[in-house]
Amino acid sequence: MINFQYVRATDVADAVHRIAADPAATFIAGGSNLIDLMKYDVERPSRLIDITRLPLKSVEETADGGLRIGALVSNSDLAYHPLIAARYPLLASAILAGASAQLRNMASTGGNLLQRTRCYYFYDTATPCNKREPGSGCSAISGLNRMHAILGTSEACIATHPSDMCVALAALDARVHAAGPAGARTIAFSDFHRLPENTPERDTNLQPNEIVTAVELPARGFAANYTYLKIRDRLSYAFALVSVAAALELQGDTIIEARLALGGVAHKPWRDPTAEAALREQAPSQATFNRAADVFLRDAKAFGHNAFKINLAHRAIVRALIQAAAGTPQSQSDKKIR
């Protein structure tokens, strides 16, 4: 860990002012990912701006029937918040599928959005990695890539986004509120995380001098028909090989709205409008779900060790849609997948 300065921001304006003054500074809230990376010398900030005392810890109802979640609401407070549990159980379930109880107590909503990849090479400064050191090369493409992406990859990077919470937020069409020197703005969730292309060092479209202040959920919560299905190498406390957030709105026997987002398969939570369109106006059935999975994975590309993920993702999509349609979401403590 390198030597760094430590300061506390007093309010959002102060935080923005402080980050603008030092391009090598970074914000710290829960610290659960940042401190980890600093100990590996992967993150080397000159200054940490402690934002944990900012007033961004409330969950409030919005005028249009949605919720505005302060960026500093902890993952566990969010997962167990009565409004989230009642109206957005998909989000609660996804949060509880990730990390451990201790980490969820520490991790913030804003920080979760900014989690960095678990790619082995990103974490090991002894190996080349374009995300950590642009231009050094991608070691994963010809190396150990069982955990790596099958969608939206580039020749520069095949890393995956590691968050579970973000997969649900993507499915729910959340919006990210940010503040910066130019004022506040909102970013659609699908525009928040980036694909690697030839700038894998940038995970998101948040500007370096901006701070996430809130995440807003629209009114539609899919509380009746949803699931978060996470497939991993042990039954808890592991990053996803593939995870699926599925949310349906049914009218009688017809799907009138469908959301499908995948984790563990791309550099961002992956959504596919065409696949969702293939579900709309259809009756829930194995055939429909198969078709949607086919569409979803039509451009999937494997790199050797991760070839199994294409098939696994297909089956997980279908199973998740079955669970969502039946109104029998996956339990995060009963490990049997129903």
């Binding site: 678990r118 082995y120 090479y121 974490y123 090991d124 002894a126 190996t127 070691s139 010809s142 190396g143 150990l144 955990m147 190498d233 042990r234 039954l235 808890s236 406390y237 592991a238 990053f239 403590s333 490990k335």
Partner: peptide
Amino acid sequence: LIDHNFGRIMNANIAEYHVPVNAD
């Protein structure tokens, strides 16, 4: 897990070197 290109263990931690957790 060893990357044989580098001759280096890449999961030299206990997040990606999996041992059973309580739920297993």
